[in-house]
Amino acid sequence: MNVGGPAARVFGVFFPLGLKTGKTRALALLGLFPVLLAVVARIFLRGRSGDMAAVFTEILMVFFLQLYVVILALFYGTSVVAEEVENRTLAYLVTRPVPKPAVVLGKFAAYALLMFALVGVGLGVSFFVLNAPRLADPSLYLTFLRYLGVLGLGILAYTAFFTFLGALLKKAIIVGLIFGFGWENIIQYFPGSTQRFSLVHYLKSLLPYRPAGIVGGGGGRGVALLLFRLEPTPPLLAVLALAALTAVFLGLACLLFRTKEYLYEE
């Protein structure tokens, strides 16, 4: 069953639609908030580049990783299937010559690119504002790309998970909220391999910024909170784990959407 072409067509419809919606505008505004903070930090912490790095990491790690990416993935991930059912627009999609998995994949790709753009703009502008004095340093760009990569992987993994939840459950939002803001935060307090039962663990393992003595705490307050008791997974394994989880959840979502019958609430 060829899904590539049909998925691309679905992408072509939902990416422009996603750009237009009110929720995208509101989320884009939220994503510019770190830029505002970066400007404020530049004004109040001028000349202290060590503090700049710590502030950026706090903004990145605490805001982007623990809030923005999760919020975006929850909004858009559940929109892939659950919103179509809730709004009863599913009929328009499943009565087209498009295999059902292509609908999931196409919408997923459209929303993932959209989210990547939203995150990329906020991240990029805030990063370069805070690191303005060091723009000639090539290693800065590598660091930025690494941060972007982490958030990109986070977008893919979280969105795939919430897409799966949306395909499986009627009340996907609530479960997603509890997972994203409950489980993902609480799990860091668990020892040993328990931490590996979360997506955020692998993302944190990939972060480039690690102030001295960070494992077990230390560094800036935001950093300490985020890397609290982190027992990091080696980066390559973390990337593979995230890729595998993305593929598994997406595959399950496609399978569910193909085999499940969706009834509208009357």
Binding site: L17, T89, A91, L93, R96, P97
Partner: peptide, 25 residues
């Protein structure tokens, strides 16, 4: 033509129909 009065409200009528025609290939 479904029974329910539901659409992708952020689209124009033209975008809506043209988009669905794109899905037809």
């Amino acid at each position: 033509c479904p029974e329910h009065d539901v659409f992708y409200e952020d689209m124009t009528g033209f975008e809506f129909v043209a988009g669905l025609m794109r899905l037809h290939g």
